[in-house]
Design a protein around this nucleic acid. Structure first.
Length: 948
RNA sequence: GCCGGGGUGGCGGAAUUGGUAGACGCACGGGACUCAAAAUCCCGCGAUCGCAAGGUCAUGAGAGUUCGAUUCUCUCCCCCGGCACCA
């Protein structure tokens, strides 16, 4: 055994066989301290594993081994997610039956996994394509059907012409099929749809308590896309119809001047009924829909519209509003019809293009964010009333600017404070005469009121200014002389609007100019806007009175409070062969009828051709013997549902089956669920939305019907970063840059491979594979092997080495629990360095180190454990306890700073008294203490800081 | 555009949550062993000035708080991820 080098191949084989034979990783269904550790189970593709796949499995392996050593009853299972398109496509390409292909692929995957030395409990292995498994997938579908949560729909669905199947919204990448990149089409097909929207609120609310990465929770919140608002109902003039419009920015509803409807809205033909040009409009609307589908919603830049000829009588009292068809309106969001106003960018642009009149009910509040007048955060605001004057020169398109003499970079318009009881126009006229001397006023008009938040430098206060804007034109240069004081304050300059644009400093003045030029656009910032209608809320910030406005609208009978979601019900039918048959029979008299539960599973029949038909019919439709059946209700002739379930069905509940994989009576026994649920740690990448949202949906449903006892399936989720190929690209057969773990294990050994993958960087980071860097892990393994064969001692331990070991025991344990494997490995390397350098190494210290190493390098640790005469197996041995007292050493290096700069380092006891520390520190930095000492800070064990 | 996460040597990355920035590893340079190479071991390794002792500058940029900032606050720039004419 005491060979020179570590012969990893034979050591690994030996222990892998022994572990399997003795079944040391088998989970018991009872006992204290259960821990359920789960990987996202793989899709057994024909290409086998590359080195990126096992990263998550190594992490759960280390975590579960560590928990087992801490005395927990650990469940760490593995299985296969083998239904779905990739398996079917692979089978089609290689001219084998998908079942055969899947079996072959699983065997290869399993062999590859075995080489890495995982602690899976293979007695619980499951496979989603096994009839004994999919029986329960079908059973769940039947329960959904019985509760009305699985229903048939005729709504057009996303159809991928390349994959020849319908897809759910979640299966899209923008407007293309996520799998093959082909743009999807809208296709009308009768579909099974699952009512995931019924669970949207609960899925949203329960996210908060989950120990999941923030970006995944956020992705789910975005996907659910909950939006609260009001729905207004108004009659359509000259018809018996009413329309509903949804608005989330309803505070400004008195500004609504027109209505838009989506070009593909189902109500459109009815709406146009009786109009002479109905057909023409419908044709144009269809063209708009087609154009939008061709280029994708996100490519629409230019608003386009068609007037329908209809008007709605606004329930709020805004009069008769014209109804337009607009290319930016979406039929499947909200009600598909929107009331529009000047306070929305798209609506504004649309109205401008088609000369639809607009009305404003929000006055902008400009917040000064640059320069010396930037408002001071947290300080109160003082109300200030004034005027802004755009003074137009006689005979010329130039306006008056003021350049301030005591602030040369400060350019403004003419302004003035409104004195008590004074009016705006009166103030404006007075200011013109006082500040400029001009007296010949030809005309006065107003551009409305604007508001500003800024810091008033002379008075040293935050202000919120309320200022009507006047445009005043002079008739001539008639002037009275200015006072000395006014003359000295600022210089008058006449500027063209373009010049004024760069001349003006305050945000409010710039906006006044844009108002004058008509380039101000829509004001859409409701948090910085003063409402002027309804009168009850005049003068209030729109966002601040949102709830009150909603209550007001409801009370007045204008609207109902409603909630809409971006998430759509889950399109659940696939027109492909390789999936779970949907357990439904279609009867001409009874409609869709559930297959009785005792007839489950509905087995996937053998077919000669399982190629997709492309007609929207599943390949199963051609098997008359299978399709034709009798109705379970009336006994008459009926046909089986021929669509299959999507790939995501089997994976939406598999974690439950691992708890009780062989149960024939129920999908999971109540006692088993009670004991094992929930999954304590779930590890995987990708699938931020789809799998994780589908599984949460099904789980909540199963909770509601009493099958499971928890409301969430995965208490904690650790998201892994991928491993890229050495060239920085994705690892793919296409690029020829795939690295097979078998080769790595053969060359460096499984343990070096495992350690390297964990040491590459933080678990959640995506890092490129480096053949050079794996050498470091291999050297680490070799050095441990070497040190094990050096003489050990029974002598008393050196305090220093003892401290490092206890630190290592603490850090490795804590880091494993926190999924910080990279720093755990680093600490073991520090420990090995210390052991190599130590004058003597005790047997007990070495054995403790072996146990810390065991989760990372299970083969090496097991071999050396046996070498030191310990009983099989190290993986069931107890995790080393650390002694906090031993971690603290007698002396520490304390830095000494003078005026914030580190000047020396002194050795002190971590508990040294302040006086002692200060005098030692003073001595060490004597030459820097060149002035009287103003202050001295002492943080025991860390730092001494002097200020002179 | 909105939201989430980031920006530290040649590279992957540490930093006890405000206390000596660069742990650990890779790469690189020098040395030992060797006939030689590999492997192994020892030393060095942010920039800059200096023979050295030592100094100065450095965690995307700029400000602020503090005795002290990679860490906290604000503004800006850049990268990654999610959502997106979503009313």
């Amino acid at each position: 055994m005491a060979s020179e080098r570590y012969d990893h191949a034979s050591v690994e084989k030996k222990w892998q066989e022994r572990w399997a034979k003795e079944g040391i990783y088998r989970a018991q269904d009872s006992g204290k301290g259960k821990v359920y550790v789960l990987d996202m189970f793989p899709y057994p593709s024909g290409e086998g594993l590359h080195v990126g796949h096992p990263k998550g499995y190594i992490a759960t392996d280390i975590y579960s081994r560590h928990m087992r050593m801490r005395g927990h009853n650990v469940l760490h299972p593995m299985g296969w997610d083998a239904f779905g398109l990739p398996a079917e496509n692979y089978a089609l390409q290689n001219k084998v039956h998908p079942r055969v292909a899947v079996e072959r692929n699983i065997a290869y995957f399993k062999e590859q996994l075995a080489h890495i030395g995982f602690d899976y409990d293979w007695s619980r292995e499951i496979n989603t394509t096994d009839p004994a498994y999919y029986k329960w997938t079908q059973w769940i579908f039947l329960q959904l059907f019985k509760k009305g949560l699985a229903y048939m729909s005729d709504e057009p669905i996303n159809w991928c012409p390349s994959c020849m199947t319908g897809l759910a919204n979640e299966d899209l990448d923008g407007t293309a099929c996520e799998r093959c990149g082909t743009p999807v089409e809208k296709k009308k097909l009768p579909q099974w749809v699952l009512k995931i929207t019924a669970y949207a609120d609960r899925m949203l609310a329960d996210l908060d308590a989950l120990k999941w990465p923030e970006h995944i929770k956020e992705a789910q919140r975005n996907w659910i896309g909950r939006s609260e608002g009001l729905t207004f109902t108004s009659p359509v003039k000259d018809t018996s119809l009413t329309i509903d419009t949804f608005s989330a920015h309803f505070e400004a509803f008195f500004a609504d001047t027109f209505v838009v409807i989506a070009p593909d809205h189902p109500l459109l033909p009815t709406l146009l009924e009786g109009l002479p040009n109905k057909e023409k409009i419908l044709k144009e609307a269809q063209a708009m829909t087609d154009k939008r589908a061709a280029q994708g919603y996100d490519q629409i830049k230019e608003p386009e519209g068609i007037f329908t000829g209809r008007y709605t009588v606004d329930s709020v009292g805004n009069g008769e509003l014209p109804i337009w068809i607009a290319n930016y309106a979406l039929a499947d969001y909200g009600t598909g019809i929107v009331k529009c106003s000047a306070h929305d960018e798209r609506d504004y642009a649309f109205a401008k293009k088609y000369n639809i009149p607009l009305k404003e009910v929000l006055e902008p509040v400009h917040v000064q964010k640059t320069g010396s007048s930037t408002f001071h955060e947290g300080e109160p605001f003082v109300e200030h009333h004034g005027v802004i004057v755009l003074l137009k020169k006689w005979d010329e398109d130039k306006y008056l600017g003021l350049r301030w003499k005591d602030a040369p970079d400060w350019g403004t318009l003419l302004t003035g404070a409104i004195e008590k009881g004074g009016g705006g126009e009166e103030t404006a006229r007075r200011e013109i005469e006082e500040e400029t001397g001009y007296t010949d006023i030809k005309s006065v008009r107003t551009l409305g009121t604007i508001h500003g938040k800024y810091y008033h430098v002379p008075k040293k206060q935050n202000r919120i200014g309320h200022t009507p804007v006047f445009v005043i034109e002079l008739g001539s240069d008639k002037r009275v002389p200015l006072s000395q004081e006014e003359e000295s304050k600022h210089k008058l300059v006449w500027l063209t609007p373009a010049e004024l644009g760069s001349f003006l400093t305050p945000a409010t003045h710039k906006y006044a100019l844009r108002k004058l030029l008509g380039t101000a656009g829509a004001w859409t910032d409701f948090s910085n806007a003063i409402l002027i209608e309804p009168a009850e809320f005049a003068g209030k910030v729109a966002r601040d009175v949102r709830e009150e406005v909603a209550d007001y609208a409801v009370k007045k009978g204008f609207a109902k409070k409603t909630v809409t979601y971006k998430i759509k019900d889950w399109v659940f039918s696939r027109q492909r062969y390789w999936g779970e048959p949907i357990p439904i029979v279609h009867c001409p008299t009874d409609g869709p009828v559930a297959v009785p539960e005792d007839q489950l599973p509905v087995r996937l029949p053998e077919v000669e051709h399982y190629e997709p038909s492309g007609t929207g019919e599943s390949p199963l439709a051609n098997i008359a013997a299978w399709v034709n059946t009798t109705c379970p209700k009336c006994g008459g002739p009926a046909k089986r549902e021929t669509n299959t379930m999507p790939q995501w069905a089997g994976s939406s509940w598999y974690y439950l089956r691992f708890m009780d994989p062989h149960n024939d009576h129920t999908l999971v026994g109540k006692d088993k669920d009670k004991y094992w649920a929930p999954v304590d740690v779930y590890v995987g990448g990708d699938h931020a939305v789809r799998h994780l949202i589908y599984a949460r949906f099904w789980h909540k449903f199963l909770y509601d019907i009493g099958v499971v006892s928890t409301t969430e399936p995965f208490a904690r989720l650790e998201f892994l970063g991928f491993i890229l190929a050495e060239d920085g690209r994705k690892m793919s057969k296409r690029y020829g840059n795939v690295i097979n773990p078998d080769d790595v294990v053969a060359q460096y050994g499984a343990d070096a491979f495992r350690i390297y993958e964990m040491f590459m960087g933080p678990f959640e980071n995506t890092v490129a594979w480096s053949t050079a860097s794996i050498q470091g892990a291999a050297r680490f393994v070799e050095r441990i092997w070497k040190l094990a064969h050096k003489p050990l001692t029974e002598d008393p331990a050196s305090a220093e080495l003892e401290s490092v070991l206890h630190q290592t025991a603490k850090k490795v344990g804590e880091d494993i629990e926190a999924f910080k494997f990279n720093t755990a490995v680093s600490q073991m390397m520090i420990c090995l360095n210390a052991m190599e350098k130590a004058p003597a190494l005790r047997v007990g210290q070495w054995k403790a180190f072996m146990r810390l190493l065991a989760p990372f390098a299970p083969h090496l640790a097991e071999e050396l454990w046996a070498y030191f005469g310990e009983p099989f197996s190290i993986h069931t041995a107890a995790w080393p306890q650390y002694d906090p007292a031993k971690i603290v050493s007698n002396t520490v290096q304390v830095a000494v700073q003078v005026n914030g700069k580190t000047r020396a380092s002194i050795e002190l006891s971590p508990t040294a008294a302040e006086e002692e520390a200060l005098s030692a520190a003073r001595k060490a930095v004597e030459k820097w203490l060149t002035g009287p000492e103003k202050k001295a800070v002492y943080v025991p064990g860390r730092i001494v800081s002097f200020v002179i």
